[in-house]
Nucleic acid binder design. Structure first.
Length: 683
RNA sequence: ACGGGCGUAGUUUAAUCUGGUAAGAAUUAUGGUCUCAUAAGUCAUGGAUUGUGGUUCAAAUCCACACGCCCGUACCA
């Protein structure tokens, strides 16, 4: 444990893209894990700087801004502010949460690449690229579609054919078209600046081999891709929204986001030193000391980037620097697997998952922080399950909250709130006390090995042992015979409560603070320190405060319903897109009379309807079988969209669409208020 | 397609690197018990190694194949 004492740490989490609010998966993998780790290191008395920021450049932001008719910069800053505020609400203890579009970062990146160029790691190359004149855009590979030269599949993308799986170059496609506007792009020659990774290969291999801390599974994959040969990578782009490249002749080029955002790990500390604490020297203090440990909390999709690309850049930069000017190479990368939502991938477009703003509307913060770390996907992908969430809240409440509450209320009621004295220890006492004195090391070791999940589970186990101890000693019996004997037990339990306050500090800081408040301890947690856990943390005679329950059980069904409503509201919001009257006029909506209804075989929800439109009869297929039976529909007058493209459903061609309302619980067909002739137009 | 990883009670998981205890826990279920505490606590019982072959005295663990899921190659940040 002394090993980490007074060591300098730079703790970082992956940079969230400014275009989207992070979801729980993003949160647990990088931001929250890094926060727990940073809080622990501070508690152990280390020098810690914890940084990250919003990744603000790149095509998607530019495109979104254009759609909303604002500048990319305004949009980026607006979203950055929202994300930054959410992290604050999540109690993320960043020393600096910045944005890549800040002057310190921009200058740092520009100078950095000029340095690398000077050191001989950048070369220029002309390439042919497809350009869409209509969108005024060089098209990234996957934004080009066309016919696959191998299998003739019509919708092959410029990077790969989804049909035959073969890798493609955009120029190989027959009849290429722009995926955004469908027009035919032209081939243009453009020059780009490349990073010479092959030149770094040997040194990167050495770095990976010599670093014994990075996870075993990542190592294998990394060595593999190095052995395969690292590709040269273009670091510039023909894009306006980004950091202008300063290479000679690169006037209209920007640095590709991937190669610039990672440098934020460095520049964010620089910005912090210069602008937040006004001690510029602190930048060198952290980044240019070879004993500083830098740690990166990321998702598994980011491993290569953080252990090959990023250190590669640092090595190239350090090439001509003296020892005291070199930037320190990564100490470790803690990568998590993915969090799923009820066994599905999080997906914004399909509305699958929980986003960090929604979470806060559904349950108190510490319930989320606890739950996420408790199920942190360390070994394999794990799912967020409502049932698990419920279990974990119960654990929090029944095991931890209750142990603390029963201990403190007993002391209040029977001992006027004063911590009673210990008397003689028997074996049961000794056993529990030895647990109190070792729990700090057990949990601390797990954290230092980046096993956050184990650390939290060990803490819960400790609280459970507190309950067992209480049960074994049954002080509510002892008190009838000999008050001191009961007091003795509660002295020991109070030490355990104190231990829990400290142990929970990194995980659920609000709760930790509450416990300290009840214990009537005014000192800041960081001043108390991790090592203050022990059998005599609280002195006999110390007065505590009457506690309130720390947690309460939640009605998970109610929360789920709230979640569904939240999702429905969002969906409604995004669907409200204004259309012109001309657009509306294109729809031919009419009243129709249902003449016949049959159930469609092998389809649980489909009905085949024969309808009369006055001038003609038609067949349409509707997904109503769950809500209506055949008989109750015949003879009803309904509303039908008649000029929808015919579509084959289960072998039956549907010539139109029946209109119905759906609130996710019931589905109701629409019926004209008065008796009106079939074929009447709806306007 | 290629490279890497993963697969253990209904559910969430430990033990896998380094083969060796009745595969350990939590939750769920069932039954008992205590009353300080929040219908909480505590105790007991039941329940699992994806499949098929192989190596071995011995396989959850090592090897091969199959199946399923994830990631990377693949510039989407």
């Amino acid at each position: 444990m002394t090993e980490t004492n007074r060591i300098k740490w730079v703790v970082t989490s992956a940079w969230p893209y400014v275009n989207a609010i992070p979801h729980l998966g993003n949160m647990v993998g990088s931001v929250l894990s890094a926060d727990v780790f940073a809080r622990y290191l501070r508690l152990k008395g280390n020098e810690v700087i914890f940084v990250s920021g919003s990744d603000s450049h790149g095509t998607p932001v530019a495109v979104a801004a254009k759609k909303q008719n604002v500048s990319a910069k305004d949009l980026a800053f607006k979203n950055h502010k929202i994300i930054k505020n959410l992290f604050k609400l999540w109690n993320i203890s960043y020393d600096n949460y910045t944005i890549t579009h800040n002057p310190t970062h921009i200058k740092f990146v520009q100078d950095f690449y000029l340095d690398i160029q000077k050191n001989g790691y950048i070369f220029e190359k002309e390439i042919e690229s497809l350009f869409c004149e209509k969108d005024n855009l060089y098209l990234p590979d996957r934004f080009v579609e066309g016919i696959c030269p191998h299998c003739g599949y019509e919708n092959a993308r410029g990077d790969q054919c989804d049909n035959c799986q073969k890798l493609l170059l955009p120029s190989e496609l027959k009849n290429p078209r722009c995926a955004i506007c469908d027009s035919t792009p032209e081939i243009r020659t453009t020059k780009h600046w490349y990073m010479d990774f092959p030149k770094l290969q040997a040194r990167l291999e050495k770095l990976i081999n010599e670093n014994k801390i990075i996870p075993q599974n990542a190592r294998q994959m990394l060595l593999n891709s190095i052995a395969e040969g690292l590709p040269e990578r273009a670091i510039t782009r023909d894009l306006e929204w980004g950091i202008p490249a300063k290479f000679k002749g690169a006037e209209n080029k920007t640095i590709y986001v991937w190669f610039e955002a990672v440098l934020g790990y460095v520049s964010a500390v620089k910005e912090w030193a210069e602008k937040i604490i006004n001690q510029p020297i602190k930048f060198d203090h952290f980044w240019k000391d070879k004993n500083t440990k830098t740690v990166y909390f990321i998702g598994k999709d980011n491993i290569i980037f953080h252990l090959i690309v990023f250190p590669g850049l640092l090595i190239a930069f350090n090439d001509d620097k003296s020892e005291s000017e070199k930037l320190v190479l990564p100490y470790n990368v803690s990568s998590t697997e993915f969090l799923m939502y009820e066994n599905e991938k999080f997906s914004k477009s399909r509305g699958v998952g929980i986003w960090i703003d929604e979470a806060l509307e559904l349950a108190p913060l510490d319930y989320w922080r606890f739950n996420l770390i408790y199920n942190r996907p360390e070994k394999s992908d794990t799912s967020f399950l409502w049932s698990e969430f419920n279990n974990n809240i119960k654990t929090l409440n029944d095991v931890i909250g209750n142990f603390i509450h029963r201990t403190l209320t007993f002391i209040i009621k029977q001992f006027e709130g004063k911590i009673p004295k210990k008397i003689e220890l028997d074996n049961t006492d000794k056993e529990f006390i030895s647990k109190i004195s070792s729990i700090g090391d057990i949990v601390g070791n797990a954290l230092e090995n980046f096993e956050l999940r184990k650390a939290l589970r060990d803490t819960v186990k400790f609280a459970r042992e507190g309950n067992v101890y209480l049960n074994d000693k049954a002080p509510w019996h002892l008190i009838k015979e000999k008050k001191e004997a009961a007091g003795h037990v509660f002295n020991i339990c109070a030490q355990a409560v104190y231990a829990l306050a400290v142990l929970f500090g990194p995980f659920i800081p609000d709760t930790s603070k509450k416990i300290l408040d009840y214990l009537n301890i005014q000192k800041e947690l960081n001043d108390l320190g991790w090592n203050s856990i022990g059998e005599n943390s609280l002195l006999a005679g110390h007065t505590i405060i009457k506690p309130k329950p720390l947690f309460q059980k939640l009605d998970i069904k109610e929360i789920q319903e709230k979640y569904i409503k939240l999702k429905a509201k969002e969906k409604g919001k995004s669907d409200v897109e204004m259309i012109s009257y001309d657009d509306f006029k294109k729809l031919d909506i009419r009243v129709a009379l249902i003449e016949n209804v049959e159930k469609v075989e092998k389809a649980e929800n489909l009905l085949k309807l024969t309808i009369d439109l006055g001038t003609e009869k038609r067949t349409i297929v509707a997904g109503l079988a769950k809500y209506y039976n055949e008989n109750e529909l015949v003879g009803k007058k309904i509303i039908v969209l008649t000029n929808l493209e015919p579509k084959k459903l289960r072998g039956i061609t549907s010539h139109g669409m029946l209109l119905a309302a759906d609130d996710e619980k019931t589905v109701s067909i629409l019926i004209p208020d008065k008796d009106i002739a079939p074929g009447s137009k709806v306007l």
